[in-house]
Design a protein around this nucleic acid. Structure first.
Lengths: 231, 231
DNA sequence: TCTGCCATGAAATCAATGATACCGACAGAC
DNA sequence: GTCTGTCGGTATCATTGATTTCATGGCAGA
């Protein structure tokens, strides 16, 4: 995962700098090469083509994003972490608008994994919530909802900063989605306590597994729990 | 509003066709000119530059969008219309992915009004809901929430169609945002009936105005209502 | 130590494309 | 009838993504 090629890293950073400073969110391969003092064929040998360079920039952006997440999470309350994660996402978008669009706006032919890895991070955070019994839908479903809403809100903020009475709108959206995804705060009697318990156990299993059962037994248990927690 | 210049209209349609069929969501000014049998300077006289052409394509996309909305709305239940509007938005995105991104993805230097006009359409639909007493926040606030979520969900669908267990995810998001924005379905006792009544009157005023008051009186009433409905 | 190979990178160049300068033609006004 | 201005075309420039071709230097093996 570490960047082993210093030249490659330098070109990625130069490209990101030019992306951030260019007025039209564009970057010229020539300018990137000149910035690091090499000629164009080097770029094409390292990245294949311009899309490859942009993919690398997006993936590098993910590293920054993940570092920011790692620095702020795990307060002990997974739901509080989740809320902080939403705000951190918004802050990242505002701090790196061009990079953010590169990472989260659909680009044809893009092979960047930034978006999926952000989703994985979110699924992990949600699985911790589920293990605490705080989730009322599948972590993957919740992740898609939250990420879509987060990206939509951030892009709206970038497109129309004037309309955006920050951060009230962001928090409204956050609360709307979270309340649809999180269980009621207190130990409110669940309509189906069996299903609730099954969901909880399933999340705990995914989180750490168990050594009390054989792998085959665990797999079968997984399938039973899946049937119990079916809508 | 009507397109009076047939040449201009032809170029916009050619550009939209090429945008939809191109694999990278790009369009070449030369190709557009050749498609309609004129030379490049014509394009630059009509649209200024390539961005002007793309803005015109986006605005033309809005016309199609508005026509779709006009064809489906007004069933008598403004809330049902709102739900149908969400689904119509998703369908438009799926049917015209490239055009959709052009319209709703932030583009530096864009002067297209498509996004704002879609927002206006949504505010109008929400004002009808407010007039029926079905809204618990300001129409403009609700519009920003709904549009952001709708765009975020649609872009997620375009970026990761495989993950998207359509239309369940879209409807989850819709319900989450709507339940945060709409009043409870039955005539549940409002916590602050005065404020509720004021909100309702305010929406009715905006919808149709009144001839019982002078314009200056109406303006003052507006400001009073604003103070009453303040958080 | 010499020799040949190959990885690396630079110069020059190609091709596509956004944008413009300049010219000609036709229509309507006076 | 001539003048003017709008409209469109030809030719051209400039930028930029991408490639071809050639030089260089280090390393393996004899």
């Amino acid at each position: 995962m570490a960047e082993t090629d210093p030249l490659r890293a330098a070109m990625i950073e130069a490209a990101e700098r030019q992306l951030a400073s260019s007025s039209d969110h564009e970057v010229a391969t020539r300018a990137v090469c000149e910035a690091v003092g090499v000629s164009q064929p080097v770029l094409y040998r390292l990245f294949g083509d311009k899309r490859g360079l942009l993919d690398a920039v997006a993936d590098h952006g993910y590293e920054r994003y993940a570092a920011l997440k790692a620095a702020q999470e795990r307060t002990g309350d997974p739901v509080a972490d989740l809320r902080a994660g939403w705000d951190g996402h918004m802050a990242f978008a505002q701090a790196n608008p061009a990079l953010y669009q590169l990472m989260f706006t659909p680009r044809p032919w893009s092979h960047s994994t930034a978006r999926d890895r952000v989703m994985d991070l979110l699924v992990a955070a949600l699985t911790r919530c589920a293990a605490a019994g705080a989730l009322k839908v599948e972590p993957r479903t919740a992740a898609q909802l939250i990420l879509s809403a987060n990206i939509g809100t951030a892009l709206h903020h970038l497109a129309r900063p004037a309309l955006f009475d920050d951060p009230a709108l962001s928090h409204r959206m956050r609360d709307a989605v979270f309340s649809h995804v999180l269980a009621e705060p207190p130990a409110q009697q669940d309509a189906d306590p069996l299903r609730a318990a099954a969901l909880r156990l399933r999340a705990q299993l995914r989180l750490g597994g168990t050594e009390a059962l054989e792998p085959a037994e665990t797999a079968l248990l997984e399938r039973w729990l899946e049937r119990i927690t079916q809508p």
